[in-house]
């Protein structure tokens, strides 16, 4: 009997599954591939190189730290690979590679390993590192125009044309004149490496839902909240048009599908998941509209990450075998008891 199976005993009902961390992470990696393909098409070979460096650095830091601390090695579960990919995805394609490696160090060692490794980090490592990358304020706010590379394999950033992201233009309430909604949906727009293509990310999201890696609860409540608020408070154009632009631009798809659903940093209970998604959506819209940044997805998820524990406690899922009728009567009793003590207190006074 190996160590794994010794500890896999819990209360009934028992369901045996071939699923493990490694297979789940592999599915996430597969789901992320379409976005990388689009990024390579839009920004050239540099996008692939940056993702590869980020993945290698994350794996190296994870391996190195576990070894240094004389702990069991967890590189095999592929979670470091996912962190490396996600961090590269939420950075501008022109980000210097050395800065990406420092971000990887921050994500893996400070955010993940110092709190105990996989499953014990309280915020998403890639997003925390993304926030830390504001250390290089110019590099992180320089956005490359798609197809502005000289040759596919050219790594020089000298001739690259930069421009504002759609969200930066939308901050003032007007739609950008430089790109169309279709271009933004497909990914032909300036933005972070892996966030530009809403289409490729949705494809990956559908794969994850079909493979049962994630439930659509968090992404849907997140996106629907953003959609509802955009519909209620549009900019200087049609409501539907504005809503579609809000949904397709920036990091919303990447954040809602791949980052807000991270197991370790999202709630477990269904009702808590819905509230968590709505919270992310609200904060995203608030930051996009009232904040000093044009995009708020990463900050909103980071903030909601810190509320996960609270949400799971406040909105627990019902225990197995407890019916709605039983819950109602329990609530009635509790209320009656409270009223009873309250009236007693009044009498005592």
């Amino acid at each position: 009997m190996d160590k794994e199976s010794m500890f896999s005993i819990s209360t009934s009902p028992h369901i045996r599954s071939r699923e493990d961390t490694r297979s789940i992470m592999l599915d996430v990696i597969i789901a992320l591939i379409p976005a990388l393909a689009v990024a390579a098409y839009m920004f050239g070979f540099r996008a692939i190189l940056m993702t590869a460096v980020s993945v290698c650095a994350c794996v190296f830091f994870e391996w190195g730290w576990r070894r240094l601390m004389k702990k069991s090695n967890t590189v095999g579960d592929l979670s470091a690979v996912v962190t490396g990919m996600l961090l590269a995805y939420c950075l501008p394609p022109t980000m210097p590679v050395w800065a990406v490696v420092i971000g990887d160090l921050f994500a893996i060692v400070l955010v993940k390993q110092l709190f105990g490794g996989i499953g014990k980090n309280f915020v998403n490592p890639a997003l925390a590192a993304r926030a830390f990358m504001a250390s290089w304020p110019v590099a992180i706010t320089t956005w490359e125009q798609p197809f502005s590379y000289k040759g596919f394999f050219s790594l020089s950033s000298a001739d690259i044309i930069t421009s504002a992201t759609p969200l930066a233009s939308m901050k003032s309430g007007a739609l950008p004149e430089t790109s169309t909604l279709l271009q933004v949906f497909i990914g032909q727009t300036p933005g972070s490496l892996g966030e530009v293509s809403a289409f490729a990310l949705l494809l990956g999201g559908i794969y994850l839902v079909v493979r049962r890696v994630i439930t659509p609860r968090i992404p849907l409540s997140f996106m629907l909240t953003v959609a509802a608020l955009s519909l209620l408070f549009p900019g200087d154009c049609g409501r539907i048009e504005w809503t579609l632009w809000q949904l397709c631009s920036g990091g919303l798809m990447l954040g809602a599908i791949f980052m807000a659903t991270d197991y370790a940093t999202s709630p477990v209970n269904p009702r808590a998941q819905t509230v968590y998604g709505i919270g992310c959506g609200l904060l995203t819209v608030f930051i996009r509209r009232f904040g000093s940044y044009a995009e708020g997805v990463s900050f909103s998820i980071l903030i909601m990450n810190t509320a996960v524990w609270l949400l799971d406690r406040a909105l627990p899922s019902p225990r197995f075998g407890v019916t709605a009728e039983m819950r109602r009567s329990a609530r009635r009793e509790a209320r009656a008891a409270k009223r009873g003590t309250a009236s007693e207190e009044v009498e005592a006074k």
Partner: peptide, 8 residues
């Protein structure tokens, strides 16, 4: 200049 991490 340009390399240090401003956030620190």
């Amino acid at each position: 200049e340009g390399y240090p991490a401003l956030l620190i």
